[in-house]
Design a protein around this nucleic acid. Sequence first.
RNA 1: GGUCGGUUCGUAUAACGGUUAGUACUCAAGAUUCUCAAUCUUGCAAUAGGGGUUCGAUUCCCCUACCGACUACCA
Length: 518
Amino acid sequence: MERKTRVRFAPSPTGPLHMGGVRTALYNYLFAKQRGGDFIIRIEDTDSQRFVPGAEKYIIEALNWCGIVPDEGVDAEGRVVETASERHPHAPYRQSQRKPIYRQYAEQLVADGFAYYAFDTAEELGAKRAEMEAAGQTFIYGQTTRMGLRNSLSMPEAEWKELLETRTDWTIRFKMPENRVVKMEDLIRGHVEVNTSTLDDKVLWKRADELPTYHLANIVDDHLMEITEVIRGEEWLPSLPLHYLLYEAFGWTETQPRFAHLSLLLKPDGKGKLSKRDGDRLGFPVFPLRWVNAEGEVSRGYREDGYFPEAFVNLLAMLGWNPGTEQELFSLEELIGAFSLERVVKSGARFNAEKAKWYNKEYLRKKSVSELTDLYMPILESKGVTGFSRDYVEKVVTLIQERATFVADFWDIASYLFVAPKTFVEKDAAKFWKEENYTLALKVADFILGFEGEFTKENLEGPLEEYIRSNEWPMGKVMNCLRLALVGASSGLGIADIVTLIGKEEFARRIEYIKTTL
RNA sequence: GGUCGGUUCGUAUAACGGUUAGUACUCAAGAUUCUCAAUCUUGCAAUAGGGGUUCGAUUCCCCUACCGACUACCA
Protein backbone atom coordinates (compact mmCIF):
# COMPACT_ATOMS: atom_id res chain seq x y z
CA MET A 1 0.00 0.00 0.00
CA GLU A 2 1.43 3.31 -1.05
CA ARG A 3 0.91 5.92 1.64
CA LYS A 4 0.94 9.64 1.11
CA THR A 5 4.29 11.06 2.11
CA ARG A 6 4.07 12.80 5.45
CA VAL A 7 7.12 14.09 7.26
CA ARG A 8 7.47 16.24 10.30
CA PHE A 9 9.88 18.67 11.85
CA ALA A 10 9.65 18.31 15.59
CA PRO A 11 11.59 20.98 17.42
CA SER A 12 11.72 21.42 21.14
CA PRO A 13 10.98 25.01 22.22
CA THR A 14 14.00 25.29 24.46
CA GLY A 15 15.59 28.22 22.66
CA PRO A 16 16.10 29.72 19.24
CA LEU A 17 16.36 27.36 16.31
CA HIS A 18 19.98 26.79 15.34
CA MET A 19 20.87 26.82 11.62
CA GLY A 20 21.41 23.08 11.80
CA GLY A 21 17.82 22.76 12.89
CA VAL A 22 16.70 24.88 9.98
CA ARG A 23 18.58 22.58 7.66
CA THR A 24 16.80 19.56 9.11
CA ALA A 25 13.47 21.31 8.63
CA LEU A 26 14.46 22.25 5.09
CA TYR A 27 15.39 18.70 4.10
CA ASN A 28 12.10 17.46 5.52
CA TYR A 29 10.23 20.13 3.62
CA LEU A 30 12.02 19.43 0.34
CA PHE A 31 11.45 15.72 0.69
CA ALA A 32 7.75 16.18 1.34
CA LYS A 33 7.13 18.71 -1.39
CA GLN A 34 8.98 16.72 -3.99
CA ARG A 35 6.64 13.84 -3.37
CA GLY A 36 3.56 15.96 -3.18
CA GLY A 37 3.31 15.12 0.49
CA ASP A 38 2.69 16.94 3.73
CA PHE A 39 5.15 18.78 5.90
CA ILE A 40 4.12 18.95 9.51
CA ILE A 41 5.47 20.99 12.38
CA ARG A 42 5.03 19.39 15.76
CA ILE A 43 6.18 21.09 18.91
CA GLU A 44 7.87 18.71 21.32
CA ASP A 45 7.40 20.51 24.59
CA THR A 46 7.34 17.58 26.95
CA ASP A 47 10.09 19.02 29.09
CA SER A 48 8.43 21.63 31.23
CA GLN A 49 11.76 22.40 32.92
CA ARG A 50 13.47 23.64 29.81
CA PHE A 51 10.61 25.47 28.19
CA VAL A 52 11.62 28.90 26.93
CA PRO A 53 8.93 31.50 26.30
CA GLY A 54 9.01 32.82 22.78
CA ALA A 55 11.04 29.94 21.41
CA GLU A 56 8.13 28.37 19.60
CA LYS A 57 7.16 31.64 17.98
CA TYR A 58 10.77 32.15 16.98
CA ILE A 59 10.96 28.72 15.36
CA ILE A 60 7.83 29.24 13.30
CA GLU A 61 8.92 32.72 12.28
CA ALA A 62 12.34 31.53 11.27
CA LEU A 63 10.97 28.76 9.09
CA ASN A 64 8.47 31.16 7.64
CA TRP A 65 11.24 33.56 6.73
CA CYS A 66 12.93 30.73 4.85
CA GLY A 67 9.76 29.94 2.97
CA ILE A 68 9.32 26.67 4.81
CA VAL A 69 5.64 26.69 5.57
CA PRO A 70 3.86 23.74 7.13
CA ASP A 71 0.84 21.96 5.72
CA GLU A 72 -0.08 21.08 9.25
CA GLY A 73 1.12 22.32 12.59
CA VAL A 74 0.95 25.50 14.57
CA ASP A 75 1.61 29.00 13.34
CA ALA A 76 3.40 31.75 15.19
CA GLU A 77 0.24 32.63 17.07
CA GLY A 78 -0.21 29.03 18.09
CA ARG A 79 -3.15 28.42 15.82
CA VAL A 80 -3.50 25.18 13.96
CA VAL A 81 -2.51 25.70 10.38
CA GLU A 82 -5.38 25.07 8.03
CA THR A 83 -4.49 24.23 4.48
CA ALA A 84 -6.83 23.77 1.58
CA SER A 85 -10.17 22.55 2.72
CA GLU A 86 -8.97 19.63 4.74
CA ARG A 87 -9.65 19.22 8.39
CA HIS A 88 -6.98 17.99 10.68
CA PRO A 89 -7.66 14.79 12.50
CA HIS A 90 -4.08 14.92 13.73
CA ALA A 91 -4.33 18.06 15.82
CA PRO A 92 -3.24 19.29 18.24
CA TYR A 93 0.39 19.63 17.22
CA ARG A 94 1.85 20.62 20.53
CA GLN A 95 2.70 17.63 22.68
CA SER A 96 1.79 19.39 25.90
CA GLN A 97 -1.73 19.61 24.50
CA ARG A 98 -1.68 15.93 23.65
CA LYS A 99 -0.98 14.95 27.24
CA PRO A 100 -4.05 12.72 27.69
CA ILE A 101 -3.10 10.63 24.69
CA TYR A 102 0.15 9.15 25.91
CA ARG A 103 -0.62 7.45 29.20
CA GLN A 104 -2.79 4.73 27.72
CA TYR A 105 -0.04 3.77 25.32
CA ALA A 106 2.50 3.56 28.09
CA GLU A 107 0.13 1.47 30.21
CA GLN A 108 -0.57 -0.76 27.24
CA LEU A 109 3.13 -1.50 26.98
CA VAL A 110 3.21 -2.48 30.66
CA ALA A 111 0.17 -4.69 30.25
CA ASP A 112 1.79 -6.42 27.30
CA GLY A 113 5.04 -6.97 29.18
CA PHE A 114 7.15 -4.52 27.20
CA ALA A 115 7.49 -2.00 30.00
CA TYR A 116 7.30 -1.74 33.76
CA TYR A 117 6.75 0.69 36.60
CA ALA A 118 9.84 2.06 38.28
CA PHE A 119 9.86 3.69 41.68
CA ASP A 120 13.46 4.73 42.15
CA THR A 121 13.77 8.42 42.79
CA ALA A 122 16.02 10.62 40.76
CA GLU A 123 18.17 11.06 43.87
CA GLU A 124 18.56 7.33 44.40
CA LEU A 125 19.59 6.81 40.83
CA GLY A 126 21.92 9.78 40.95
CA ALA A 127 23.62 8.31 44.01
CA LYS A 128 23.94 4.92 42.33
CA ARG A 129 25.41 6.50 39.28
CA ALA A 130 27.94 8.49 41.29
CA GLU A 131 28.87 5.41 43.27
CA MET A 132 29.51 3.32 40.18
CA GLU A 133 31.44 6.09 38.51
CA ALA A 134 33.65 6.46 41.54
CA ALA A 135 34.48 2.79 41.08
CA GLY A 136 35.28 3.47 37.45
CA GLN A 137 32.14 1.85 36.14
CA THR A 138 29.08 3.03 34.33
CA PHE A 139 25.63 2.65 35.74
CA ILE A 140 22.85 1.79 33.40
CA TYR A 141 19.28 1.08 34.35
CA GLY A 142 18.86 -2.06 32.33
CA GLN A 143 18.90 -5.81 32.09
CA THR A 144 21.83 -6.32 34.45
CA THR A 145 20.64 -3.94 37.14
CA ARG A 146 16.86 -3.71 36.96
CA MET A 147 16.20 -6.62 39.29
CA GLY A 148 18.21 -4.93 41.98
CA LEU A 149 16.27 -1.71 41.66
CA ARG A 150 12.79 -0.79 42.81
CA ASN A 151 10.26 -1.60 40.12
CA SER A 152 7.30 -3.76 39.26
CA LEU A 153 9.63 -6.46 37.99
CA SER A 154 11.67 -6.77 41.13
CA MET A 155 9.03 -6.11 43.80
CA PRO A 156 6.07 -8.18 44.99
CA GLU A 157 2.91 -7.19 43.17
CA ALA A 158 1.05 -6.00 46.24
CA GLU A 159 3.91 -3.75 47.17
CA TRP A 160 4.38 -2.00 43.83
CA LYS A 161 0.65 -1.69 43.32
CA GLU A 162 0.47 0.21 46.54
CA LEU A 163 3.31 2.49 45.52
CA LEU A 164 1.51 3.08 42.24
CA GLU A 165 -1.38 4.50 44.22
CA THR A 166 0.42 6.35 46.96
CA ARG A 167 3.31 7.85 45.10
CA THR A 168 3.30 10.34 42.30
CA ASP A 169 6.91 10.19 41.22
CA TRP A 170 7.13 6.86 39.48
CA THR A 171 7.93 6.27 35.85
CA ILE A 172 7.25 3.72 33.19
CA ARG A 173 10.39 2.25 31.70
CA PHE A 174 10.88 0.22 28.57
CA LYS A 175 12.00 -3.32 29.26
CA MET A 176 14.88 -3.68 26.88
CA PRO A 177 15.06 -7.25 25.58
CA GLU A 178 18.26 -9.15 26.26
CA ASN A 179 20.86 -9.98 23.69
CA ARG A 180 18.88 -9.26 20.59
CA VAL A 181 20.42 -7.80 17.48
CA VAL A 182 18.23 -5.05 16.13
CA LYS A 183 18.69 -4.67 12.40
CA MET A 184 17.88 -1.26 11.06
CA GLU A 185 17.87 0.52 7.74
CA ASP A 186 18.75 4.17 7.48
CA LEU A 187 17.99 6.00 4.25
CA ILE A 188 21.32 7.79 4.41
CA ARG A 189 23.60 5.40 6.25
CA GLY A 190 22.33 2.07 5.07
CA HIS A 191 22.25 -0.98 7.29
CA VAL A 192 22.97 -0.54 11.00
CA GLU A 193 22.95 -3.20 13.69
CA VAL A 194 22.95 -2.90 17.45
CA ASN A 195 22.83 -5.51 20.16
CA THR A 196 20.23 -4.69 22.79
CA SER A 197 22.49 -5.85 25.59
CA THR A 198 24.28 -2.51 25.38
CA LEU A 199 21.06 -0.55 25.74
CA ASP A 200 19.27 0.66 28.84
CA ASP A 201 15.67 0.76 30.00
CA LYS A 202 14.60 4.21 28.94
CA VAL A 203 11.95 6.13 30.79
CA LEU A 204 8.86 6.42 28.60
CA TRP A 205 6.41 8.20 30.82
CA LYS A 206 6.64 10.28 33.97
CA ARG A 207 3.92 10.21 36.59
CA ALA A 208 5.15 13.44 38.15
CA ASP A 209 4.04 15.63 35.29
CA GLU A 210 2.02 12.99 33.47
CA LEU A 211 4.04 13.58 30.36
CA PRO A 212 5.88 11.15 28.11
CA THR A 213 9.56 11.45 27.32
CA TYR A 214 10.72 12.05 23.79
CA HIS A 215 10.87 8.39 22.86
CA LEU A 216 7.30 7.52 23.66
CA ALA A 217 5.77 10.77 22.47
CA ASN A 218 7.74 10.58 19.28
CA ILE A 219 6.67 7.08 18.33
CA VAL A 220 3.06 7.55 19.35
CA ASP A 221 2.71 10.85 17.53
CA ASP A 222 4.52 9.72 14.42
CA HIS A 223 2.19 6.76 14.31
CA LEU A 224 -0.95 8.75 14.98
CA MET A 225 0.04 11.44 12.52
CA GLU A 226 0.81 8.82 9.90
CA ILE A 227 4.36 9.93 9.37
CA THR A 228 6.05 8.01 6.57
CA GLU A 229 9.65 9.21 6.88
CA VAL A 230 11.54 10.53 9.86
CA ILE A 231 14.38 12.80 8.83
CA ARG A 232 16.23 14.03 11.89
CA GLY A 233 19.62 14.79 13.36
CA GLU A 234 22.36 12.26 13.89
CA GLU A 235 22.04 12.60 17.65
CA TRP A 236 19.02 10.30 17.38
CA LEU A 237 20.81 7.43 15.73
CA PRO A 238 21.74 5.80 19.07
CA SER A 239 18.10 5.64 20.10
CA LEU A 240 16.93 4.19 16.82
CA PRO A 241 16.99 0.61 18.14
CA LEU A 242 14.69 1.64 20.96
CA HIS A 243 12.36 3.24 18.48
CA TYR A 244 12.34 0.14 16.31
CA LEU A 245 11.55 -1.95 19.37
CA LEU A 246 8.80 0.41 20.38
CA TYR A 247 7.11 0.11 17.00
CA GLU A 248 7.39 -3.61 17.36
CA ALA A 249 5.93 -3.62 20.86
CA PHE A 250 2.98 -1.57 19.73
CA GLY A 251 2.47 -3.81 16.74
CA TRP A 252 2.95 -0.93 14.34
CA THR A 253 5.80 -2.28 12.25
CA GLU A 254 3.65 -2.36 9.13
CA THR A 255 3.37 1.42 9.08
CA GLN A 256 6.66 2.20 10.76
CA PRO A 257 8.24 5.22 9.12
CA ARG A 258 11.55 4.96 7.34
CA PHE A 259 14.42 6.77 9.02
CA ALA A 260 17.13 9.10 7.78
CA HIS A 261 19.73 10.54 10.11
CA LEU A 262 21.46 13.73 9.09
CA SER A 263 25.01 14.51 10.09
CA LEU A 264 25.73 17.51 12.24
CA LEU A 265 26.99 20.96 11.32
CA LEU A 266 30.54 21.43 12.58
CA LYS A 267 32.52 24.42 13.75
CA PRO A 268 34.38 26.31 10.99
CA ASP A 269 37.58 25.74 12.93
CA GLY A 270 38.74 23.37 15.62
CA LYS A 271 36.70 20.53 16.99
CA GLY A 272 33.09 19.90 17.67
CA LYS A 273 29.72 20.88 16.43
CA LEU A 274 28.70 24.36 15.54
CA SER A 275 27.59 26.28 18.59
CA LYS A 276 26.23 29.65 19.53
CA ARG A 277 29.66 30.64 20.81
CA ASP A 278 31.31 30.10 17.43
CA GLY A 279 29.17 32.75 15.88
CA ASP A 280 30.17 35.31 18.46
CA ARG A 281 33.79 34.29 18.28
CA LEU A 282 34.16 34.13 14.50
CA GLY A 283 31.68 36.82 13.56
CA PHE A 284 28.83 35.14 11.75
CA PRO A 285 25.29 34.24 12.72
CA VAL A 286 24.41 30.79 13.96
CA PHE A 287 20.72 31.54 14.10
CA PRO A 288 18.33 32.42 11.28
CA LEU A 289 16.84 35.32 13.21
CA ARG A 290 18.16 37.58 15.90
CA TRP A 291 17.45 36.29 19.38
CA VAL A 292 17.60 37.97 22.73
CA ASN A 293 17.55 35.62 25.68
CA ALA A 294 16.15 36.19 29.14
CA GLU A 295 19.45 37.67 30.30
CA GLY A 296 19.35 40.21 27.52
CA GLU A 297 22.14 38.47 25.64
CA VAL A 298 21.85 39.07 21.92
CA SER A 299 22.56 36.51 19.24
CA ARG A 300 22.72 37.81 15.73
CA GLY A 301 20.60 36.40 12.95
CA TYR A 302 21.07 35.86 9.24
CA ARG A 303 18.03 37.99 8.52
CA GLU A 304 19.28 40.94 10.54
CA ASP A 305 22.79 40.56 9.15
CA GLY A 306 21.39 41.19 5.71
CA TYR A 307 21.21 37.73 4.22
CA PHE A 308 18.42 37.04 1.78
CA PRO A 309 16.30 34.09 2.81
CA GLU A 310 16.92 32.52 -0.62
CA ALA A 311 20.65 32.68 -0.05
CA PHE A 312 20.36 31.27 3.43
CA VAL A 313 18.21 28.39 2.26
CA ASN A 314 20.54 27.73 -0.65
CA LEU A 315 23.69 27.64 1.42
CA LEU A 316 22.03 25.44 4.01
CA ALA A 317 20.85 23.01 1.36
CA MET A 318 24.39 22.69 0.00
CA LEU A 319 25.80 21.93 3.42
CA GLY A 320 25.62 18.18 3.36
CA TRP A 321 23.79 17.66 0.12
CA ASN A 322 24.71 18.05 -3.52
CA PRO A 323 22.73 17.70 -6.72
CA GLY A 324 25.32 15.58 -8.49
CA THR A 325 25.76 18.34 -11.05
CA GLU A 326 27.83 21.48 -10.89
CA GLN A 327 24.88 23.74 -10.30
CA GLU A 328 25.25 25.63 -7.05
CA LEU A 329 22.47 28.17 -7.13
CA PHE A 330 19.04 26.79 -6.42
CA SER A 331 15.75 28.43 -5.65
CA LEU A 332 13.47 26.69 -3.19
CA GLU A 333 11.44 25.40 -6.10
CA GLU A 334 14.53 24.05 -7.82
CA LEU A 335 15.63 22.43 -4.59
CA ILE A 336 12.30 20.67 -4.32
CA GLY A 337 12.89 19.27 -7.77
CA ALA A 338 16.51 18.28 -7.29
CA PHE A 339 16.64 17.08 -3.69
CA SER A 340 17.23 13.47 -2.79
CA LEU A 341 18.19 11.74 0.42
CA GLU A 342 20.53 9.47 -1.57
CA ARG A 343 22.77 12.45 -2.22
CA VAL A 344 22.91 13.57 1.39
CA VAL A 345 26.44 13.26 2.67
CA LYS A 346 27.13 11.03 5.67
CA SER A 347 29.93 13.03 7.22
CA GLY A 348 29.53 16.21 9.22
CA ALA A 349 29.77 19.48 7.32
CA ARG A 350 31.95 22.27 8.54
CA PHE A 351 30.29 25.62 8.13
CA ASN A 352 32.18 28.18 6.07
CA ALA A 353 31.25 31.83 6.53
CA GLU A 354 33.05 32.97 3.35
CA LYS A 355 31.01 30.68 1.18
CA ALA A 356 27.88 31.87 2.92
CA LYS A 357 28.71 35.43 1.89
CA TRP A 358 29.38 34.33 -1.65
CA TYR A 359 25.87 32.93 -1.87
CA ASN A 360 24.39 36.17 -0.69
CA LYS A 361 26.43 38.11 -3.18
CA GLU A 362 25.15 35.92 -5.98
CA TYR A 363 21.58 36.46 -4.90
CA LEU A 364 22.10 40.18 -4.54
CA ARG A 365 23.26 40.29 -8.13
CA LYS A 366 20.14 38.50 -9.26
CA LYS A 367 17.81 40.93 -7.52
CA SER A 368 16.04 43.64 -9.45
CA VAL A 369 17.23 47.19 -9.02
CA SER A 370 13.77 48.10 -7.86
CA GLU A 371 13.75 45.54 -5.07
CA LEU A 372 17.21 46.53 -3.92
CA THR A 373 16.21 50.17 -3.94
CA ASP A 374 13.26 49.34 -1.71
CA LEU A 375 15.68 47.81 0.72
CA TYR A 376 18.23 50.58 0.46
CA MET A 377 15.89 53.56 0.92
CA PRO A 378 15.35 52.97 4.65
CA ILE A 379 19.08 52.60 5.15
CA LEU A 380 19.70 55.94 3.45
CA GLU A 381 17.14 57.50 5.67
CA SER A 382 18.83 56.09 8.74
CA LYS A 383 22.02 57.76 7.53
CA GLY A 384 20.19 61.05 7.50
CA VAL A 385 20.16 61.19 3.73
CA THR A 386 17.01 62.67 2.28
CA GLY A 387 16.04 64.66 -0.74
CA PHE A 388 17.14 62.18 -3.36
CA SER A 389 14.61 60.86 -5.80
CA ARG A 390 13.91 57.17 -6.09
CA ASP A 391 15.14 57.44 -9.65
CA TYR A 392 18.47 58.72 -8.41
CA VAL A 393 18.80 55.92 -5.87
CA GLU A 394 18.00 53.37 -8.54
CA LYS A 395 20.79 54.73 -10.70
CA VAL A 396 23.19 54.41 -7.80
CA VAL A 397 22.04 50.87 -7.08
CA THR A 398 22.51 49.92 -10.72
CA LEU A 399 26.10 51.07 -10.60
CA ILE A 400 27.10 49.33 -7.37
CA GLN A 401 24.92 46.25 -7.36
CA GLU A 402 27.64 43.87 -8.46
CA ARG A 403 30.17 45.23 -6.01
CA ALA A 404 28.18 44.40 -2.90
CA THR A 405 27.56 41.35 -0.78
CA PHE A 406 24.83 42.89 1.35
CA VAL A 407 22.48 45.78 0.76
CA ALA A 408 24.08 47.44 3.75
CA ASP A 409 27.36 47.50 1.78
CA PHE A 410 25.86 50.01 -0.62
CA TRP A 411 26.55 52.82 1.78
CA ASP A 412 30.19 51.95 2.32
CA ILE A 413 30.70 51.47 -1.39
CA ALA A 414 29.17 54.72 -2.56
CA SER A 415 28.07 57.06 0.19
CA TYR A 416 29.88 59.76 -1.79
CA LEU A 417 27.07 59.74 -4.30
CA PHE A 418 24.87 61.20 -1.57
CA VAL A 419 27.18 63.18 0.65
CA ALA A 420 30.49 64.89 -0.07
CA PRO A 421 33.54 63.25 1.50
CA LYS A 422 34.55 64.93 4.73
CA THR A 423 37.88 63.24 5.03
CA PHE A 424 40.46 62.16 2.52
CA VAL A 425 42.47 58.98 2.69
CA GLU A 426 45.89 60.27 3.64
CA LYS A 427 47.87 57.71 1.75
CA ASP A 428 45.92 58.35 -1.45
CA ALA A 429 46.13 62.12 -1.05
CA ALA A 430 49.87 61.96 -0.55
CA LYS A 431 50.18 59.92 -3.69
CA PHE A 432 48.01 61.91 -6.08
CA TRP A 433 47.39 65.38 -4.69
CA LYS A 434 50.60 66.87 -5.97
CA GLU A 435 50.91 70.16 -7.70
CA GLU A 436 51.89 68.68 -11.06
CA ASN A 437 48.72 66.59 -10.92
CA TYR A 438 46.16 68.93 -9.52
CA THR A 439 46.94 71.85 -11.75
CA LEU A 440 46.01 69.56 -14.61
CA ALA A 441 43.09 68.06 -12.75
CA LEU A 442 41.64 71.50 -12.14
CA LYS A 443 41.83 72.22 -15.83
CA VAL A 444 39.95 68.98 -16.46
CA ALA A 445 37.43 70.09 -13.88
CA ASP A 446 36.95 73.30 -15.80
CA PHE A 447 36.45 71.26 -18.94
CA ILE A 448 33.73 69.26 -17.24
CA LEU A 449 32.07 72.36 -15.86
CA GLY A 450 32.15 73.89 -19.29
CA PHE A 451 30.77 70.78 -20.95
CA GLU A 452 27.78 71.64 -23.04
CA GLY A 453 25.14 69.23 -24.12
CA GLU A 454 23.20 66.76 -22.08
CA PHE A 455 25.11 65.82 -18.98
CA THR A 456 25.15 62.04 -19.17
CA LYS A 457 27.86 59.49 -18.78
CA GLU A 458 27.56 58.44 -22.39
CA ASN A 459 27.95 61.99 -23.60
CA LEU A 460 30.70 63.02 -21.25
CA GLU A 461 32.95 60.02 -21.00
CA GLY A 462 34.35 60.06 -24.52
CA PRO A 463 35.08 63.77 -24.77
CA LEU A 464 36.53 63.81 -21.27
CA GLU A 465 39.08 61.11 -22.03
CA GLU A 466 39.77 62.59 -25.40
CA TYR A 467 40.48 65.95 -23.79
CA ILE A 468 43.03 64.47 -21.38
CA ARG A 469 44.67 62.33 -24.05
CA SER A 470 44.91 65.09 -26.59
CA ASN A 471 46.78 67.16 -24.03
CA GLU A 472 48.97 64.15 -23.32
CA TRP A 473 48.33 64.41 -19.63
CA PRO A 474 48.75 61.33 -17.43
CA MET A 475 45.28 59.82 -17.38
CA GLY A 476 45.67 57.85 -14.16
CA LYS A 477 47.09 60.70 -12.16
CA VAL A 478 44.60 63.26 -13.32
CA MET A 479 41.60 61.00 -12.87
CA ASN A 480 42.68 59.93 -9.42
CA CYS A 481 43.17 63.51 -8.45
CA LEU A 482 39.59 64.20 -9.39
CA ARG A 483 38.46 61.04 -7.69
CA LEU A 484 40.13 62.20 -4.52
CA ALA A 485 38.01 65.32 -4.63
CA LEU A 486 34.83 63.42 -5.36
CA VAL A 487 35.26 60.29 -3.30
CA GLY A 488 37.86 61.15 -0.71
CA ALA A 489 39.99 58.26 -1.89
CA SER A 490 41.63 56.96 -5.03
CA SER A 491 39.20 54.12 -5.38
CA GLY A 492 35.63 54.06 -6.52
CA LEU A 493 33.42 54.40 -9.56
CA GLY A 494 34.42 55.89 -12.88
CA ILE A 495 34.76 59.65 -12.93
CA ALA A 496 32.16 60.13 -15.62
CA ASP A 497 29.70 58.07 -13.61
CA ILE A 498 30.24 60.05 -10.47
CA VAL A 499 30.21 63.45 -12.10
CA THR A 500 27.05 62.92 -14.10
CA LEU A 501 25.30 61.45 -11.10
CA ILE A 502 26.07 64.15 -8.56
CA GLY A 503 25.70 66.91 -11.14
CA LYS A 504 27.67 69.99 -12.08
CA GLU A 505 26.92 72.07 -9.03
CA GLU A 506 27.88 69.42 -6.51
CA PHE A 507 30.92 68.65 -8.62
CA ALA A 508 31.96 72.29 -8.49
CA ARG A 509 31.43 72.39 -4.73
CA ARG A 510 33.65 69.38 -4.15
CA ILE A 511 36.38 70.78 -6.35
CA GLU A 512 36.28 74.09 -4.45
CA TYR A 513 36.34 72.25 -1.15
CA ILE A 514 39.35 70.12 -1.91
CA LYS A 515 41.27 73.17 -3.16
CA THR A 516 40.98 74.75 0.26
CA THR A 517 41.54 71.57 2.21
CA LEU A 518 44.59 69.96 0.78
C1' G B 1 35.08 3.67 29.45
C1' G B 2 31.02 1.47 26.29
C1' U B 3 27.78 1.68 21.84
C1' C B 4 26.95 3.72 17.16
C1' G B 5 28.37 6.89 13.11
C1' G B 6 32.10 9.35 10.19
C1' U B 7 37.24 10.39 7.56
C1' U B 8 38.94 13.15 -0.66
C1' C B 9 42.74 20.05 -1.52
C1' G B 10 42.16 25.09 4.22
C1' U B 11 36.41 24.63 3.51
C1' A B 12 31.95 22.46 0.81
C1' U B 13 31.88 18.50 -2.39
C1' A B 14 32.36 15.14 -7.38
C1' A B 15 34.33 10.64 -9.04
C1' C B 16 29.10 4.69 -6.51
C1' G B 17 36.66 -0.84 -9.13
C1' G B 18 39.84 1.75 -14.42
C1' U B 19 40.00 9.89 -14.62
C1' U B 20 46.40 13.64 -15.75
C1' A B 21 41.39 12.66 -8.79
C1' G B 22 36.87 17.25 -11.23
C1' U B 23 34.07 21.75 -9.42
C1' A B 24 32.98 25.90 -6.10
C1' C B 25 34.64 29.24 -2.04
C1' U B 26 39.15 31.24 -0.02
C1' C B 27 44.19 32.63 -1.33
C1' A B 28 48.15 34.09 -5.08
C1' A B 29 49.64 35.84 -9.98
C1' G B 30 48.41 37.90 -14.69
C1' A B 31 44.95 40.40 -18.22
C1' U B 32 41.56 44.55 -18.41
C1' U B 33 40.31 49.60 -16.52
C1' C B 34 41.15 56.55 -15.04
C1' U B 35 41.56 53.88 -9.54
C1' C B 36 38.90 50.27 -6.74
C1' A B 37 35.51 46.59 -7.39
C1' A B 38 33.53 43.42 -10.99
C1' U B 39 35.04 40.29 -15.03
C1' C B 40 38.41 36.85 -17.60
C1' U B 41 42.87 33.62 -17.48
C1' U B 42 46.36 30.89 -14.78
C1' G B 43 48.18 28.86 -10.36
C1' C B 44 48.65 26.67 -5.12
C1' A B 45 46.36 22.64 -2.75
C1' A B 46 43.47 16.34 -1.13
C1' U B 47 42.09 10.36 -1.19
C1' A B 48 44.28 9.75 7.54
C1' G B 49 47.92 5.32 8.25
C1' G B 50 48.69 0.04 7.67
C1' G B 51 47.16 -4.58 5.91
C1' G B 52 44.21 -7.44 2.62
C1' U B 53 40.59 -8.73 -1.91
C1' U B 54 41.43 -7.67 -7.17
C1' C B 55 44.69 -7.47 -13.45
C1' G B 56 43.43 -2.72 -11.09
C1' A B 57 41.41 0.41 -5.46
C1' U B 58 39.25 7.20 -3.34
C1' U B 59 35.62 3.32 -4.14
C1' C B 60 35.01 -3.46 -1.13
C1' C B 61 36.92 -5.99 3.76
C1' C B 62 39.95 -5.80 8.41
C1' C B 63 43.04 -3.20 12.00
C1' U B 64 44.92 1.44 13.91
C1' A B 65 44.52 6.68 14.43
C1' C B 66 41.57 10.80 14.60
C1' C B 67 36.69 13.33 14.72
C1' G B 68 31.58 13.24 16.26
C1' A B 69 27.00 11.68 18.53
C1' C B 70 24.84 9.00 22.39
C1' U B 71 25.41 6.88 27.17
C1' A B 72 19.30 11.91 31.94
C1' C B 73 12.51 11.17 34.91
C1' C B 74 16.58 16.63 27.93
C1' A B 75 15.11 16.71 23.38
